[in-house]
């Protein structure tokens, strides 16, 4: 799932490591991002999300490894690589003493071939036409975020990089950003890399997520696979849950049996359910019901990070 390089691959992160003094901040990170997909970069605070994103856009140097954007190395071929990238790193800080339009003119001058019409079109797209000639210091956070988005779309980038794009926004603002991101990926075929520690938001926005913890990429999965996982938890409502738990444990010694208020919760494969029930009934356990417990993204996330985390520590 890390993604082999295909024709659609726009961004390649190749074995990137960053050490500051003796501390390894990012440890041999590798993944690819393809066109038309929204790649979510998920991890707890301090895991290295922002550092990785800053390395992709060349704000921070890497100790070893390489990052290629459309085949151009960000290290050796910076101008060619970065011209395909539009980004907001953390909050979109603009020149507050200038108008939104002047800010856009400022950034338009730094890329080639951005016309006045293009600026107007982008302003229209993010919905700032009414206020674009006001000074940025009079803007709300949501409007600044829109201006930030306009700023990174001016030069028609193929890759969009958004670091914590919904930080501090109200629900309407979050939704707006999400809609824009999905639209850009689907309609303009952009590759979008989004980082966040907010799971619910990622769930709605991303096609694929990479989970980073302590500088290591511990998993890359399709969003749909990630939420469901390959096994589900079934809760069986029984009388005498301790006994039931013991019986199941005898059947599957490796299984993590959890006792709940009304019975036992078992992470089972679907095909094993009848066998377990049969066994329990044979042992005189009264069964009142069996139901599937859907895991939340949060459960999955904690599960993945704690499991892999243990592996890292061993």
């Amino acid at each position: 799932m890390r993604g082999e390089k295909t024709m659609d691959t726009l961004v390649e992160i190749q074995n990137v490591t960053k050490t500051i003094k003796v501390r390894t901040i990012i440890d041999s990170l590798s993944f690819n991002v393809n066109k038309g997909e929204v790649f979510g970069f998920l991890g707890p605070n301090g895991a290295g999300k922002t550092t990785t994103i800053r390395m992709i856009v060349g704000l921070i140097g890497m100790t070893s490894g390489d990052i290629k954007i459309l085949g151009h190395s960000i290290k050796t071929d910076f101008e060619q690589a970065i011209k395909h990238v539009g980004g907001i790193v953390e909050n979109p800080e603009m020149y507050k003493f200038m108008s939104g339009y002047q800010n856009l003119v400022h950034f338009a001058r730094m890329s080639q071939g951005v016309t006045k019409e293009k600026i107007a079109e982008t302003v229209e797209f993010v919905g700032l036409t009414d206020r674009i000639h006001d000074k940025v210091k009079t803007y709300s956070l949501g409007m600044r975020q829109r201006l930030g988005l306009a700023q990174c779309l001016l030069h028609d980038p193929k890759i969009l990089i958004l670091d914590e794009p919904t930080n501090g926004l109200d629900p309407a603002g979050i939704r707006e950003i999400r809609d824009h991101v999905r639209k850009l990926a689907k309609e303009k075929d952009m590759a979008v890399i989004v980082s966040s520690h907010l799971l619910s938001e990622m769930e709605m926005m991303c096609d694929r997520i990479g989970i980073i913890q302590q500088g290591k990429l511990i998993d890359v999965q399709l969003m749909t696979d990630f939420v469901q996982g390959n096994e589900k938890i079934y809760e069986i409502e029984v009388e005498g849950k301790e006994k039931a738990g013991r019986i199941v444990k005898e059947m599957y010694p490796d299984l993590r049996v959890q006792l709940t208020e009304i019975g036992v919760a078992l992470p089972l494969k679907r095909e094993n359910i009848p066998e377990v029930i049969k066994h329990l009934v044979n042992q005189d356990i009264h069964i009142f019901g069996v139901k599937e417990v859907t895991k939340t993204l949060e459960d999955r996330f904690l599960e993945v990070t704690s499991q892999k985390g243990e592996l890292v520590h061993d």
Partner: peptide, 14 residues
């Protein structure tokens, strides 16, 4: 100070 350096340095200019 303004934080604009991040937007300034991710342009195709060395």
């Amino acid at each position: 100070n303004w934080g604009t350096i991040k937007l300034l340095l991710i342009r195709p200019i060395k």
